[in-house]
Design a protein around this nucleic acid. Structure first.
Lengths: 130, 130
DNA sequence: GTCCATTGCCTTGTGGCGCAAGGTAGTGCG
DNA sequence: CGCACTACCTTGCGCCACAAGGCAATGGAC
């Protein structure tokens, strides 16, 4: 009771996000130019309802610094501060391609490992292991 | 640019590992009791050829402390230091189930986002960055 | 009996990054 | 003129994979 851990599931989600969040943003930008607030919405719409803007803006800044995306400002149609849109550079497009491959190359083995033991109980042959 | 990053792909792999490596170990243990060195081999055999033992041992220690696994020692048949085998506890089994669900709930949306934009080649309007 | 190579386990220091919370700035309306 | 809303960005925090390095036990070589 002194401390309430937030939620084990949430935390795992956070860790899973790592290494793939940048790819998601890249992929989202590949569809069309987007601005900061949009990403959180798009991710939530896609089923990732967590990502806070505190994760997104620094990441966008990093990617821009890395030359993967470029930005330009445009006034907000709904009245408010001007938006900063991002679009993909060629390097970003290449990185996106590489990243997709990495993702596939990663989820395959992991999925296999995670589902491997599910159906193990087939003791008819007897013996296990060994 | 003062510094040369080792390899972009490798680094992404590292980040992806987070949040799923513990699940992999759990799943591996679920099949049969295992000892430290075995994990790296098993992961490599499954297609994840990176994971160093420097990542595995601390993680095992954490999971044992969390009550997800328990350990016992047994002499090494191949001559050498005794091995420390780990087996799943009930809590670990439950966590594994939860983790598998989390993994599925995560890869689905991400995969969808990553493959969404495939068919949107740049409008030839082109222009540059400027 | 002594030495060493092998097997296996564990610790320390480093860096990256998601996150919560908070702060700034531009815009239009009452 | 001030309030509320939109949107952007920063700070402090904690987590964790990794590289590199060290310790312990065993069995065989000589």
């Amino acid at each position: 009771m002194t401390k309430e851990p937030p939620a084990t599931g949430d935390q795992r989600r956070s860790q899973l996000l790592r290494g793939v969040l940048d790819l998601c943003l890249l992929s989202l930008i590949a569809e069309r130019p987007r601005y900061g607030f949009e990403f959180a919405e798009a991710l939530a719409a896609g089923g990732l309802e967590l990502v806070s803007d505190g994760s997104i803006y620094p990441l966008l800044a990093r990617m821009e610094r890395a030359g993967l995306i470029s930005s330009y400002r445009a006034p907000s149609p709904s009245g408010g501060a001007p938006r900063k849109y991002y679009r993909l550079t060629e390097a970003g497009d290449a990185e996106l391609g590489r990243g997709r491959a990495d993702w596939q190359a990663f989820t395959g083995p992991v999925g296999r490992i995670l589902t491997a033991a599910t159906t193990t109980p087939t003791p008819s042959t007897g013996e296990n292991t060994a």
